[in-house]
Design a protein around this nucleic acid. Structure first.
Lengths: 132, 132
DNA sequence: GATATTAAAGAGTCTTGAAGTCTATTATTG
DNA sequence: CAATAATAGACTTCAAGACTCTTTAATATC
């Protein structure tokens, strides 16, 4: 069980966009270079973030990607859900009447992790960085 | 990102062994039937638990699998680690000098989940079941 | 309005790992 | 010795991750 690389790309791109605190969009070529990944692949990932409204895109010359208004409240969980999907990490397919005690434990533990990821925003990382 | 089915089989088998509180071993055929999985495949999973000392195996007639002494303290995390491995869910491969702020957040959240899974034992489930 | 620039979309490729199966081999009991 | 049962290893199948390539659509600048 591993997070996909796409999640790593998405998180790093969001951080990069947040750090370059200009409102001018940044092209995918530049973003891709930083992470040593192909532009077309990264754009595919970013399109998901666009569809969720976390990132704005602009076609044409001087286009690119930028954060949308309200980006300061975007959490790690928001980004992870967008890339990985929202489904639970554990599914007990057996038919013990939907009250599997194991499933219950697994879900509770998962929620602990998500709770932490919900608290943490990309913006928090910027604060950390500027105060050190 | 999903837990493997093998983890589900392992957890359910441990619970099953714990519930049948006889010290006589249970054959893999019986265990496999319950979960509708092939005996040979399940045995492969159980062998991992044997190697970690959580389960004892006995060859020959009237053989099978049984819990080892001290099984009451086996946690969900122990079992999951045995099947899934102990490595982190998130790896940031980039070379920002081993102090990636994103990695830090991801690890912290992961530890919250593990903390919960470490607390919870299979034995806890038995108590729940007998008190209801 | 033509052209260059840039994101979006879709199909296709390659590799890896999960989830098994099948067939020995080894160990144990009666 | 014969039946039972776990262990081991090789092998297969399938799906998903991690891309690439190519085309299309949108937009700004000249």
């Amino acid at each position: 069980m591993k997070y996909s690389k796409a999640t790593n790309y998405a998180l790093h791109t969001m951080l990069h966009l947040a750090l370059s605190n200009s409102n001018k969009p940044i092209g995918v070529q530049i973003l891709a270079q930083q992470q040593k990944v192909s532009p077309t692949y990264l754009s595919k990932i970013l399109t998901k973030l666009v569809k969720e409204g976390m990132v704005a895109s602009a076609s044409g010359a001087n286009g690119g990607y930028s954060l949308t208004k309200g980006w300061e409240s975007i959490s790690f969980l928001d980004i992870i859900y967008t890339i990985e999907g929202k489904s639970s990490l554990f599914d007990c397919d057996f038919d013990h009447g939907s009250h599997c005690p194991i499933q219950k434990v697994m879900l509770r533990s998962e929620e602990k992790m998500e709770e932490e990821l919900r608290k943490q925003t990309i913006a928090d990382l910027i604060l950390d960085r500027t105060t050190t």
